[in-house]
């Protein structure tokens, strides 16, 4: 259980980025977070992950306050290319977090290969990250987080650079992994369709400072399908609603600034 209570954050003397955010995520839930760009989504995730101490409020994971990165939590960073280590092969990058899981080298390499296969990159194992395209690097970063086998996964626009087909495959992979392992996932996306398609809930943030503008329950069947789910009337209705919430606020902001 993840609880975010009254979380606020400001960078230095700048105006606050986050303002009194309250959020609860139950075990096994997949919550999508959407909001206008620059509204503070990455900041929120960093506070939740324990990488950034908030100026006020608290984050609790399974009842314990988060003051450093919990060891059952993985992060897929928005800036994926810089979070991969250029001096390690792709396989070593993916295998690196498994050191903490007390596995021997052979097991680590095997798990890394499995994770790379799951994101469709078994052939890239011996390459270096900088030899791959942006989309492939992003999938390596996802494979690394999956190989780690965390209970909580925080993903910051994880599919931003991949092509449409791969994106759908990765969305389905995520739903499968969540179904199999019961992982709790917090996913930031700028794609409104995606937020509805993968989410059990969609949290919409407003801008300047970020507040929870809406917290919508996605009442779609658990088993989702790229074609049929997206044509359900509930889906169409929900994506319109989320779209209005995100854009409406942006439009209302404009005359002010």
């Amino acid at each position: 259980m993840l609880e975010v209570a009254n979380l606020s954050h400001a960078y230095g003397d700048a105006p606050p980025v986050l303002s009194s955010i309250d959020l609860e995520v139950r075990p096994g839930e997949l919550v999508s977070i959407v909001g206008p760009s620059g509204c503070g989504k990455s900041t929120l995730l960093r506070c939740i992950a324990g990488l950034q101490a908030p100026t006020a409020g608290q984050v609790r994971l399974d009842g314990k306050p988060v003051d450093r990165v919990p060891d059952n939590l993985a992060v897929v960073f928005q800036d994926y290319s810089r979070s991969l280590f250029p001096w390690m092969s792709v396989r070593d990058n993916v295998a690196l977090p498994l050191r903490r899981r007390r596995k021997n080298r052979a097991q680590r390499q095997e798990n890394a290969m499995k994770a790379l296969e799951s994101v469709g990159l078994p052939d890239a194992a011996a390459k270096y990250p900088w030899q791959l395209s942006g989309g492939m690097q992003q999938r390596v970063a996802i494979a690394r987080a999956l190989a780690y086998g965390p209970e909580f996964m925080i993903m910051d626009e994880p599919f931003g650079s991949v092509d449409a087909q791969t994106r759908e495959d990765l969305e389905d992979l995520l739903l499968r992994v969540r179904g199999n392992s019961g992982m709790t996932i917090l996913l930031v996306t700028h794609d409104i369709d995606e937020s509805v398609y993968v989410g059990d809930r969609v949290v919409v943030l407003s801008k300047g400072p970020a507040r929870v503008r809406a917290d919508l329950w996605v009442g779609l069947p658990t088993a989702r399908d790229q074609i049929t789910t997206r044509e359900l009337p509930e889906f169409v209705h929900l994506r319109a609603e989320v779209g209005r919430l995100v854009r409406g606020r942006e439009a209302a902001d404009e005359p002010k600034s």
């Binding site: 960073f77 280590f85 977090p97 050191r99 690394r144």
Partner: peptide, 26 residues
Amino acid sequence: EKLQLETAEVFGITGAARLFRITLPA
């Protein structure tokens, strides 16, 4: 890179492992 150190932190690479696998290669 700060992000490289944060990545190490997230995945539990600390102490000597961080020095030899992250900091010194970087």
